[in-house]
Design a protein around this nucleic acid. Structure first.
Length: 411
DNA sequence: TCTGGGGTCCTAGGACCC
DNA sequence: TCTGGGGTCCTAGGACCC
């Protein structure tokens, strides 16, 4: 039972000697905007997704610390953010508003952020024995062979300094004997943090933290834990594991271990994606034709992306969000892996027909049970060395067409 | 004010097979 | 006619993360 958490090859001895860094760029999108627009430095900056200049739609992707002071936070609707922090330009024209208490709003520009991210990741990769990219602004590094606990802080500060000097963004880092503790440590002194937690200090470092600060504890679990009198990681660490397992299943055991700073997972490079999806939100409508149109476009887009990545898929699914916010998913598995955009479209629209007549606010299309052809694997091996792909001029030819797959179940 | 978009992992019941 | 156990796959939903 106890060995379940351990990955193959990660012996207890190896785990005990591990030095893991979690690096997390501070307000990354806002930092990128400041990089190319230095006038934004020191100003409140809000980056919105689904947002266009002058618009009121969309949601906050990143708010700079200056903007957070006004109560702007990520995932907030732009309209709410604007209530708290008006746009600079509008504040200048409106005598009731103060220009001092206004901010700059910018739409997300993923391509640019990726180009900055590649530079940051380049430094991180160079500093690590093993590098695992988590997202555009986050990564784990196994640096066991690069430093020791004596030198860990100097090592981490050097890394931060190189990134700041070369790229111009600040990165918060946490250094710890395992991934889950390193993650919490990088968060502990944001922004521009550098927190080293040595093996003997893990328990006391974690103990006072609210449970919600543990990776994997969201609002639902946090409330449920609080209802049981478990407020801090220390409470969780000393809670009864069997009771946690009864209440939360295997996740309960996991959280118990994380709260105790026990995490034997080895840092491994990120593998191939498990699914690819596209989704989009719109004004709630019950016009099935409009919804079907969207689904068709998303199906084409997702199939194109799969093709560009050399991915075959065996399951096609849709997501339909109906007011106020209920998420419905439907999917269908095929008899074999395919690369067949027309089929994605057909299956997606067929699955959608169940929702004919319903009010819909958002739809998505997903392909999953992915398989990657061998030559594409080879390409991805090379990809790990240098650039991070994404914008290659020509997608690889599809490895397999769907001719051999039975379509009888759709006709 | 109608909460964006892209992911991962887990659970649970039913079908189906041996 | 009714009884087991074990395993995998499929589908739907939920929690969580960035």
């Amino acid at each position: 039972m106890a060995g379940d958490a351990r990955l193959p090859g990660a012996s207890a001895e190896e785990a005990a000697d591990r030095i893991v860094i979690h690096a997390d760029a501070d307000c990354f999108y806002a930092a990128c905007e400041r990089l190319r627009e230095p006038a934004l430095r020191g100003e409140p900056v809000v980056v919105g997704m689904g947002y266009e200049a002058g618009d009121t739609r969309g949601a906050v992707a990143t708010a700079s610390y200056e903007a957070r002071v006004y109560g702007v936070e990520s995932a907030q609707p732009i309209t709410d953010a604007l209530d708290r922090l008006p746009r600079k330009g509008e504040a200048a024209r409106d005598p009731d508003l103060s220009v001092e208490e206004a901010g700059f709003y910018r739409p997300v520009d993923m391509e640019y952020y990726k180009s900055v991210s590649e530079k940051v990741h380049g430094h991180l990769r160079e500093a690590a024995d093993v590098f695992r990219e988590v997202s555009i602004d986050e990564a784990y590094l196994d640096v066991s062979g690069r430093t020791d606990w004596e030198g860990a802080e100097t090592f981490a500060r050097g890394l931060k300094r190189r990134i700041a000097a070369d790229v111009g963004v600040t990165v918060s880092v946490g250094v710890a004997p395992n991934m889950s503790t390193a993650k919490v440590a990088s968060d502990a002194e944001k922004p521009d943090g550098c927190v080293v937690v040595r093996p003997a200090e893990v328990r006391e470092f974690l103990a006072p933290l609210p449970v919600a600060e543990l990776h994997g504890v969201g609002p639902v679990t946090a409330r449920s834990l609080r209802d049981r009198g478990i407020e801090t990681a220390g409470d969780l660490a000393s809670a009864d594991e069997t009771e946690l397992a009864n209440e939360f299943g295997e996740r309960g055991r996991d959280l118990h271990r994380r709260a105790r700073g026990e995490d034997d997972r080895a840092v491994t490079p990120r593998g191939q994606p498990k699914s690819l999806s596209r989704e989009s939100a719109f004004e709630t409508t019950d016009d099935h034709g409009v919804v079907a149109e969207r689904v068709g476009a998303l199906a084409r887009a997702v199939a194109e992306r799969a093709q560009a990545k050399g991915a075959l898929y065996r399951t096609i699914g849709i997501k339909v969000v109906t007011p106020p916010f209920s998420v419905n998913t439907r999917d269908r598995s095929l008899s074999g892996p395919v690369d067949d955009p027309a089929l994605v479209e057909r299956v997606a629209e067929d699955l959608l027909s169940e929702f004919d007549g319903e009010r819909v606010r958002k739809v998505g299309v997903r392909v999953s049970k992915l398989e990657f052809s061998d030559d594409e694997q080879a390409n991805l091996g090379a990809w790990g060395e240098g650039d991070s792909g994404g914008t290659s001029a020509e997608p690889p030819p599809p490895a397999t067409r769907s001719g051999q797959v039975s379509l009888s179940e759709f006709e």
